[in-house]
């Protein structure tokens, strides 16, 4: 059981553009990822939207291993700016977790 928390998304949005709400969970991104990342981007984005912070923190490696190759982004039917969102998440994690 996880308590939803709207504050996380607000904090992330303070680090840059984050348009994950348009995601409709179709899975195109997962299917196309050359790294075979399964929980990025849609699951982590959803964790951010719902405020499941511990889930996000359990996936820092995934967030930083994304190649930003944009294969997912140009093919996203909901026009989610996936790679830009990943970068925003990195900014957020660098600030809050890495204190950089």
């Amino acid at each position: 059981m996880t308590r939803v928390n709207a504050e996380l998304l607000k904090t992330v949005e303070a680090s840059g553009e984050f348009n994950a709400v348009a995601c409709m969970n179709c899975g195109t991104c997962t299917a196309l990822c050359p790294l075979g990342l399964t929980n990025l981007p849609r699951e982590i984005f959803r964790d951010v939207v719902l405020g499941l912070e511990e889930k996000v923190l359990a996936n820092v490696e995934t967030v930083f291993s994304c190649l930003l190759c944009r294969m997912c982004q140009v093919n996203c039917p909901a026009e989610v700016k996936i790679a830009d969102n990943v970068r925003t998440l990195r900014v957020h994690l660098n600030k809050t977790l890495h204190h950089l």
């Binding site: 059981m1 308590r3 939803v4 959803r46 964790d47 889930k55």
Partner: peptide
């Protein structure tokens, strides 16, 4: 949409 995560609102 989130791994059938049980959420509490």
């Amino acid at each position: 949409l989130t791994r059938r995560e049980e959420l509490e609102i």
